[in-house]
Write a protein that binds this DNA or RNA. Structure first.
Lengths: 233, 233
DNA sequence: CGGCATCCGGGAAGATACTG
DNA sequence: CAGTATCTTCCCGGATGCCG
């Protein structure tokens, strides 16, 4: 076979997406984002724009070409957009469009349902974004009545803040400075504290977690995210 | 390579499922039901048990071997169970387990999100179950305040009923007898009436739909399921 | 190093034919 | 009707390499 010059392959036949021929909304959603990794890429962007390399690191196991392909497809359908950060950074990042941001209920429904799975293994690796989104998903508003406080999370290089107020929780990326409590550790350790029932002192003793600020408030925070019972349990 | 005798392949090594190694609940959900067709099979069971052939007919385009495989996998993870109808029917049907039934919010989230997609084509074929589930998904409770009535649907061979009461909607399979309004037609035509804004008289004139009972009530019913605006529109 | 293209092997999905 | 067997197609994932 002869080699192809660049302009010969320019108009690549863009793989014909295998669609469900179904007017059902859920089926169409799967046409759009049902490819492997697509939803997880979106998940990683739900708390803000990310760079290619950060995405790849968070999505344990994805290969570069697949990530490229998914980002292209998500961009084509209007879920993701490419941005260039202002100088002096000037790096390219990927962000969800407003419509892409509206996909969060999908993750909450999936997460709530799968949390009851007998096979769910909470000890697998978890990304910072996953952990923080899970707070929104599992938040039990009645338990937080009358609580008004800011909780900071230093997870790896990034910082996030959860604001609790009037039975609502608001999670976003941003500096932890000034929070009433600051947790510093890996997402996995945070998950162990919130969902695994591992006591704070134990995690601190082994140096896996650092807690600054109001300890009683920290303890209360950890109890605001109950997991549903496993099926058949 | 030599042929294999049946008992040599009896203990099939059950394909190692390609999992995301991720503690995130949504990722685990996709491990469980992320395979192609899996969620749509579940959707078709959300209003009650179905036979293999009916599933195959509703899932336009699925091939028998794939349906078999998905049903086996869904059974293995505890989402689907096989039942045999009591005599004299004595036919095998597939049904969702209670946990499987809890997956409905996933379809609602997917459907609500995808309804805003510019690419969504409501003229594709739609199954009876899809249509009826969409009523639950798109139901606008405030518009139905003070409405208390029963609506029957004759869709192909099957009958379903929607009970509206106190701003709640309850959809289930069952005889339409005694309903205040009875619609008879294909799911696609019903979808055109509810979501396409096609006026009832037009559909009736071309014989695509038959409406029995209180016509004013029928008209009111059709306005209870507003679609969200398309993105960029 | 970030982003993207190319090649290749394995395996899932799809179509078809066949069986009880 | 309810699947099973087989063959083909093509997506996924890994490795490699190019380019800025």
């Amino acid at each position: 076979m002869l080699g192809k010059t660049p302009h010969e392959i320019a108009a690549q036949p863009r793989r014909q997406p295998r669609r469900y021929e179904d007017a059902c909304g859920a089926a169409h959603a799967l046409d759009l984002v049902g490819d492997r990794w697509a939803l997880l890429v979106m998940r990683e962007l739900l708390l803000g724009p990310r760079r290619f390399g950060d995405l790849r690191a968070s999505l344990c196991g994805i290969s570069a070409n697949i990530l490229t392909q998914r980002l292209e497809e998500l961009e084509a359908i209007g879920v993701v957009e490419r941005r260039v950060l202002p100088p002096p950074a000037k790096v390219q990042v990927y962000a969800l469009t407003p419509w892409g941001m509206e996909s969060e209920p999908i993750f909450q429904a999936l997460g709530r349902w799968a949390a009851r799975s007998p096979q769910h293994d909470p000890r697998l690796p978890i990304s910072a974004v996953s952990f923080l989104l899970s707070l929104r998903t599992m938040f039990d508003a009645p338990r937080a009545e009358g609580l008004r406080a800011r909780f900071g999370f230093r997870l790896g290089e990034e910082e996030f803040v959860a604001r609790l107020d009037g039975g609502e929780i608001l999670v976003e990326a941003g500096p932890v400075a000034g929070a009433d409590v600051i947790f510093a550790g890996s997402p996995a350790v945070m998950a162990a504290a919130v969902y695994g029932g591992v006591p704070l002192p134990a995690l601190e003793a082994e140096g896996a977690l650092r807690v600054e600020g109001d300890r009683a408030l920290a303890e209360r925070f950890l109890g605001l995210f109950p997991l549903p019972p496993k099926v058949g349990g």
